[in-house]
Design a protein around this nucleic acid. Sequence first.
DNA 1: GAAATAGTGTCTATGAGACACTATTGC
DNA 2: GCAATAGTGTCTCATAGACACTATTTC
Lengths: 304, 304
Amino acid sequence: MSGSTEHGARTQEDFLSAYDPRAFDPVAVTVDIVALTLRQGALHVLLVRRGAQPYAGRWALPGGFLRPGRESLDQAARRELAEETGLSDAPGIDRVHLEQLGSYGAPARDPRMHVVSVAYLAFAPDLPDARAGGDAAAAAWVPVAGPPPDTTRDGATDAERRDGTHGGGPDRRSAAGARPPVEDLAFDHTAILADGLDRARAKIEYTPLATAFLGEEFTVTELRAVYETVWGRTLHAGNFHRKVLSVPGFVRPTGGTAAHANSRGGPRARLYRPGDARLLHPALLRPGREDGPPGPDAAGTPAR
Amino acid sequence: MSGSTEHGARTQEDFLSAYDPRAFDPVAVTVDIVALTLRQGALHVLLVRRGAQPYAGRWALPGGFLRPGRESLDQAARRELAEETGLSDAPGIDRVHLEQLGSYGAPARDPRMHVVSVAYLAFAPDLPDARAGGDAAAAAWVPVAGPPPDTTRDGATDAERRDGTHGGGPDRRSAAGARPPVEDLAFDHTAILADGLDRARAKIEYTPLATAFLGEEFTVTELRAVYETVWGRTLHAGNFHRKVLSVPGFVRPTGGTAAHANSRGGPRARLYRPGDARLLHPALLRPGREDGPPGPDAAGTPAR
DNA sequence: GAAATAGTGTCTATGAGACACTATTGC
DNA sequence: GCAATAGTGTCTCATAGACACTATTTC
């Protein structure tokens, strides 16, 4: 496996003292983060504009090199998320859910050398605007185009414009040009983002992670909005309400009610906090494409 | 895409020619494989006995270093699986399902240096005995202790003994000593194995991957045995049968029937092949721990 | 007061699981 | 023939979804 004797005479200590890590072909490890949040009713991803080569000037997922010997992958991910976006002490940053998404290691995915990237997925509550930090020339929450098919999303374009006028920070000039290129990111980040979105859509089905997009207290209607936005489809309000309350440990009533009712009227909604369940049972099934007749078309249904 | 200047003075080409990958702290990347199969009705994992330091003499998951610049992670995983176990041209090796499991990167998980391991999970049909190759001193399919609780598994011990007498290969001496230490592997491989088992148990719920443990043609009873073994619980034969046939695209009848009936009698079972579905809908739900009363104990139920 | 919403009740279709039963094979 | 199994029918219960309805708030 490495360079050394077989069963040999040498002890592990001897072996280690003679071991030279630089004798092998170099490889680097980075962490990249797909951080998702909800702003103005639209799903946004955190992007940075690269200030350094390669891909200088292009948008990319926030991330950076693992510091070998000094941190674990999880630690690197959390560090990079905070560091490169200036969100270290943003309120709510500690409530961000971070999980590993997968690793990407095609030899030519980075022109510098073989770089293996360990991607992470983050679910964030609505955080402040991002500030560029580290090597980033800019950082911004960028709206993600609506999920696959369905709903003709005029709202997306709208939200994009609003986002452009949002940050007074260094990301102004970057957002001024065209609409943020979520589909033309540096490296293979477009593919990583797509994988992250798939994971997020699946994950809120059977875990309570949708609450990670909300504040500490929320109404069932707000929770429903999370599902509708991430899945890109409207859900039946009444059935959703009953379903959420029937899943043990999903949410826990605070006893209070929202300060104001919906701006268009109606009673004031009750408030809830995340419950202590880690898995939803039964799950909140995503409204599927109708199971068509069990014809031979069953093959082309990988999405659910 | 690559060499456009943007703002910087240097082009991407200039940058790359001056780039020195060895200027940074070294890190290595390995792939490790949790390869599962069914033998004599028990779940087995492929292990190798390390011939080199560190952890020489200890059992470990098969795997090895990524060859930087020369292969992707997936390619490395498939190469190592074949290489280190001498199964390159075993019949059925091409039907092995390989998927990424996750990455492990604690700084001290390898005493040599910081090594990030990308773990893979493999579902294999019953393959021949493994042959040691590469740096491995031995390679063997080793029974995995039964899943968490439930069924007092005397069968496991039994299967272990049989496994010891099985291979005429170089793994003889290794299996001779004590029972294979699936719970005391090198590095953090015990934890990786546990994660792999969890993933496998979950994955056969909503994908047809249970068929990857079987031959090209199989009976519903054989398929049920896969589920019973991986989940460690018995399933109702009649309901399972109807369920499997009712899920579109799960299995496809060949028209034939098994050559012989069960050794204890009964009609000869019909034969099936894997269908073309990639996801089972509806899923085969794992018989859960009964949802207890929705008390505060809902927290301690991460297993489902 | 009009309109929209929060939350609940009810009905139906579907699937999971328990149980029962027939037909077929090995011994 | 006996025993065990493959496969099917039937019943019950839980859940998803459609629809209806009341109460509450904004404008």
